[in-house]
Amino acid sequence: MNAMKLIALPVLATALVMTGCASRKPAADVQAGQNPNGSTTVNTSGLSEDAALNAQNLAGASSKGVTEANKAFLAKRVVHFDYDSTELSNEDLQTLQAHAQFLVANANSRVALTGHTDERGTREYNMALGERRAKAVESFLITTGVSPNQLEAVSYGKEMPINAGHDENAWKENRRVEINYEAVPPLLK
């Protein structure tokens, strides 16, 4: 009986995934226009729910809080850390200050701060270190006036490296917090 369950579970899971994929709507063109009040509207008919949300977020990008002086810093969406550290560098403070300025000017913007580590250390230790890094960035943003409701700190530890190497250069790239806009990103054009 247990062997039957072991065979049935993968088949059932595959069927559910295939059913979910089959019910998704195909990609469609996204068309943006202007309302009489000046706000942007997006025609999302024919899009899946996720695609419609992404299209609305991109159309809802804001230039409020974006200056020529902070564009380069707003384009940077990653801050890096030294080994076993949660200290922010002076360069990273400038990047975070630009993002804080944008977030304060755009109360509808939402950001996920994802903490990452290099591969050294246990999974548990790295999850905690990734969280401390994300919280360090979150704390800085809050102290500069960003609403805590606009921020979410998440840790991935060593589970999502961007460089699969096993040397200091790879480890240096992987020790990071990513700034991921989930709603109303900066318009940098």
Rank of each mutant, 00 (worst) to 15 (best):
residue 3 A to P: 05
residue 4 M to E: 15
residue 4 M to G: 10
residue 8 A to T: 12
residue 9 L to T: 14
residue 10 P to K: 01
residue 11 V to T: 11
residue 14 T to P: 01
residue 15 A to M: 11
residue 15 A to C: 13
residue 16 L to D: 09
residue 16 L to C: 14
residue 20 G to R: 03
residue 21 C to T: 07
residue 25 K to F: 07
residue 30 V to P: 11
residue 32 A to C: 09
residue 34 Q to L: 13
residue 34 Q to R: 11
residue 36 P to Q: 14
residue 38 G to N: 07
residue 41 T to E: 01
residue 41 T to M: 06
residue 42 V to Q: 00
residue 44 T to G: 15
residue 46 G to N: 08
residue 48 S to R: 03
residue 49 E to I: 14
residue 50 D to V: 06
residue 51 A to P: 10
residue 51 A to T: 06
residue 51 A to L: 09
residue 52 A to E: 10
residue 55 A to T: 14
residue 57 N to S: 14
residue 58 L to F: 12
residue 59 A to F: 12
residue 60 G to D: 11
residue 62 S to M: 13
residue 66 V to S: 09
residue 66 V to L: 06
residue 68 E to Y: 07
residue 74 L to I: 04
residue 76 K to P: 00
residue 77 R to C: 07
residue 80 H to P: 04
residue 85 S to F: 09
residue 86 T to S: 14
residue 92 D to H: 08
residue 93 L to V: 10
residue 96 L to N: 04
residue 102 F to Y: 15
residue 105 A to E: 14
residue 108 N to M: 11
residue 110 R to F: 05
residue 112 A to S: 06
residue 113 L to A: 10
residue 116 H to C: 00
residue 117 T to D: 08
residue 119 E to Y: 07
residue 120 R to E: 05
residue 121 G to N: 06
residue 121 G to T: 02
residue 122 T to S: 15
residue 123 R to M: 02
residue 124 E to D: 14
residue 125 Y to S: 03
residue 131 E to I: 02
residue 136 A to Q: 07
residue 137 V to S: 09
residue 139 S to L: 00
residue 140 F to R: 03
residue 142 I to P: 03
residue 144 T to W: 06
residue 144 T to R: 12
residue 146 V to G: 10
residue 146 V to K: 08
residue 151 L to N: 04
residue 155 S to T: 07
residue 156 Y to I: 11
residue 158 K to E: 06
residue 158 K to G: 01
residue 162 I to Y: 06
residue 163 N to M: 08
residue 163 N to Y: 07
residue 163 N to F: 04
residue 164 A to L: 02
residue 165 G to S: 00
residue 165 G to V: 05
residue 165 G to P: 13
residue 171 W to C: 02
residue 177 V to T: 13
residue 186 P to E: 11
residue 187 L to M: 12
residue 188 L to R: 00
